[in-house]
Write a protein that binds this DNA or RNA. Structure first.
Length: 413
DNA sequence: AGTCCACAGGAAGGGCAGGCGA
DNA sequence: TCGCCTGCCCTTCCTGTGGACT
């Protein structure tokens, strides 16, 4: 889009003379589509969580004994992306904290997202985060892990209490560092005099228990709860509930909500996706100076969300990974390419740009990472007498490819 | 049935930056 | 200051593997 048209699409009037009028005056004089955009954030916790009564009751009945001073069973919560796992557990914790405050029960709840980069994505960082939650500050690095364990257990055992530790996206951490830390957290109950710890693990990978040691599997999986995807009708209810608070009157019709719900329901019943769609469609409508959200805004939003996520991912890749991706993009043939071909193209790019050439082993790992990010697709195939290799192809659409080139060409050409 | 290719991918460890405690 | 610890990125060495070829 040209600079000028971007400006007009943000609602700036063509006739505005910057010298005479404040350029933002026009923007402020228009009535906004949004009443409160916060209601459309997936992190927002509404008073009432729709279509998850059963799951909330299940979780609360398991952790309720903590109010009487008993250690609740450990729980494993499974469910796909956007099925409401996090929001439900946060709601339950919120209510538990409220009632434990009233009853003066000694319950402490700790919520940690294990996927948060540089926050809790290693054993050390997880422990540092746990210590932080109980009021002990430790350096980002430098101490032996067992010292952190000791500090944590000493601190929490100072008074009689029950600690509920919620580890969201626990599969990410276990894949990275193994399951030893879970074993330590669970096992320690027998050594603490005053405090009892319960662990609630949340994951969207149903096969993830395969990575676990049998001891941990049996003790952590004392209770298991599965969150099923929302269907289109349920998503519609959720969107209706949020839209009522998020948008001003007469800015959105039910057909728009239905459309967003239908799109998200097709994509594994993801409520987060549905909310994003609605929010971005609203933003586009507002920029276009439209008084209400139209179907075309939802269509544009759908494309924009996909484009934005992948482009942002590519932009934030380390330079070596960008070079590898550029080598894959540079592949002139229509066919899939092999690791060897990518590696030889990658070497040329490095030499041209004074970039250190990594070994093929390392490049192979970085190719795997690009696969995990969903930018490329790789498949290990055997060519019999001619060995085994990986077939690599791009997963991105031509639109995204053009934008990716705009990022990579200035870096490597 | 055995051989062989060209890798994939696991394991171990090096080097670096950064922090702690003696 | 030094030894020891961490995470992170990387290399080196090695074993494993599927299927075409002999």
């Amino acid at each position: 889009m040209e600079k000028q048209s971007i400006l007009y699409s943000y609602g700036f009037d063509k006739e505005t003379k910057t010298s005479k009028h404040n350029i933002f005056k026009n923007y402020l004089s228009r009535k906004s589509i949004f009443k409160n955009k916060e209601f459309l954030l997936s992190s927002f916790i509404p008073d009432e969580i729709l279509h998850r009564d059963k799951e909330i009751m299940e979780i609360s009945s398991i952790i309720a004994p903590s109010l009487r001073g008993y250690k609740p069973n450990n729980i494993f919560i499974y469910g796909g992306v956007g099925t409401g796992k996090t929001i439900c557990i946060k709601k339950v914790l919120e209510q538990l904290n409220e009632i434990s405050l009233q009853n003066k029960s000694n319950i402490k709840t700790i919520y940690i997202n294990c996927k948060m980069k540089r926050v809790a994505d290693t054993e050390y960082r997880l422990l540092a985060q746990l210590l932080n939650e109980v009021g002990v500050l430790v350096p980002d690095t430098g101490l032996p892990t067992d010292v952190l364990y000791k500090k944590f257990f000493n601190e929490i055992d100072k008074k009689k209490q029950i600690i509920l530790i919620v580890l969201d996206e626990i599969d990410a951490l276990i894949r990275k560092v193994g399951d030893e830390f879970l074993y330590n957290l669970i096992r320690i109950n027998s050594e603490l005099n005053n405090t009892k710890i319960s662990v609630i693990g949340i994951t969207n990978d149903l096969t993830f228990t395969n990575y676990l040691d049998a001891r941990i599997k049996s003790s952590l999986g004392e209770e298991e709860i599965i969150f099923h995807p929302y269907n289109a009708m349920q998503l519609r209810d959720i969107l209706k509930q949020r839209a009522k608070e998020a948008f001003n009157k007469n800015t959105i019709k039910i057909n728009i909500i239905n459309k967003c719900a239908a799109i998200a329901a097709q994509e594994h019943g993801d409520a987060r996706r549905a909310l994003d769609l609605l929010r971005v469609a609203g933003e586009i409508a507002e920029r276009e100076n439209s008084s209400e959200i139209l179907e075309k805004h939802v269509n544009i939003a759908e494309e924009k969300i996909e484009l934005d996520t992948i482009i942002e991912t590519i932009r934030s890749l380390p330079k070596q990974s960008q070079a590898i991706l550029y080598a894959i993009i540079n592949n002139k043939s229509e066919n899939k390419i092999s690791t060897k071909e990518v590696f030889s193209e990658y070497k040329k790019i490095c030499l041209k740009n004074n970039l250190r050439v990594l070994t093929q082993r390392r490049v192979s790992d970085l190719i795997n990472e690009l696969d995990i990010l969903g930018i490329i697709d790789t498949k290990v195939i055997s060519k019999g007498r001619y060995g085994r290799t990986r077939e690599i192809s791009l997963l991105i659409t031509n639109d995204i490819l053009d934008n990716a080139k705009k990022i990579l060409i200035p870096i490597f050409e």
